[in-house]
Write a protein that binds this DNA or RNA. Structure first.
Lengths: 147, 147
DNA sequence: TAATTATTAGTGTATATACACTTAATATTA
DNA sequence: TAATATTAAGTGTATATACACTAATAATTA
């Protein structure tokens, strides 16, 4: 298991938005470090995994699933296409395009998913069951700030 | 056509990193929207406010205060210098440079700070005292994941 | 069916993030 | 004091984020 690192006392900011932004950066850095040998960031792994959930999604469907801005997703897809992990095919509708994983993409996800499990388990152990459940609930409520 | 946003329920993700990343995006969008008329983002307002806390900081000192990567801060400072809100003077040490607010910067902070208070109060009302206190505590613990 | 509206995707622009690396200057040590 | 190590800042590169806008296509309506 990863060494989670020494806990220094760091007082929260007055601003709660900055508090969550710092926590988000730290959590991302932690997951990205664990995923490092897979060559994926946590954002990329999440994207790839959402493609295989059910029907092959269009850009807009994937953005809705991931609850991320569509134009952001559009940009995030590009390096994964360049790396040969995603292919973009014509969709049923001439306006749409369908995303799919390549064989390379599937292989990378397998590796990344394994490492992700370690990060996820470390976090669970670090926070404890109760605090983990509570923060999931509270983050969900924060997310609902925006429609 | 059916509304895709309602097809996918807003349940938390399996991945706790994505949960916090989504919550961070939503909270940022909420604060940015409230701050809109000031012309500042919450990240920019926070940066400007940290300059006036005590001694005028160098880039590295400010990065430590804000607990953000120094090179990120370096980039974030630029648009505020371009907008005439910050000036960069030589520091005591030839290696260092000292940041200070301009008169324009101080004026913008006054306006932004007022709006920030509204956003902060809205969030407090939205979450409630107990949940707000709890999430501040948990976010602080998450932040300590990284040294 | 022609005109209008809605949907889907993409682009321009700008900020936010951070790792790897470089340069310059100060501080420490052999 | 000369060599080395440390510190501060900046740059190259790349991903992540999102608003405003455009273009193309499909769906709806007059």
């Amino acid at each position: 298991m990863k060494n989670i690192g020494e806990v220094y006392p760091k007082a929260p900011s007055l601003c709660n938005c900055m508090n969550i932004r710092r926590a988000s950066r730290a959590t991302t850095q932690f997951y990205d470090e664990v995923l490092k040998s897979s060559g994926l960031t946590i954002a990329q792994l999440s994207l790839l995994r959402h493609i295989e959930g059910g029907e092959l999604p269009t850009i807009s469907e994937l953005a809705n699933m991931m609850r991320i801005d569509r134009t952001t997703l559009n940009r995030n897809v590009k390096p994964l296409v360049d790396a040969g992990m995603i292919v973009i095919n014509p969709g049923k509708d001439s306006r749409t395009r369908q995303l799919a994983l390549t064989e390379v993409g599937r292989e990378v996800v397998v590796k990344g998913w394994e490492l992700w499990g370690e990060a996820q388990a470390s976090l669970k152990e670090y926070l404890g069951e109760d605090d983990l459940a509570k923060i999931i609930q509270l983050l969900s409520k924060l997310e609902a700030l925006v429609p």
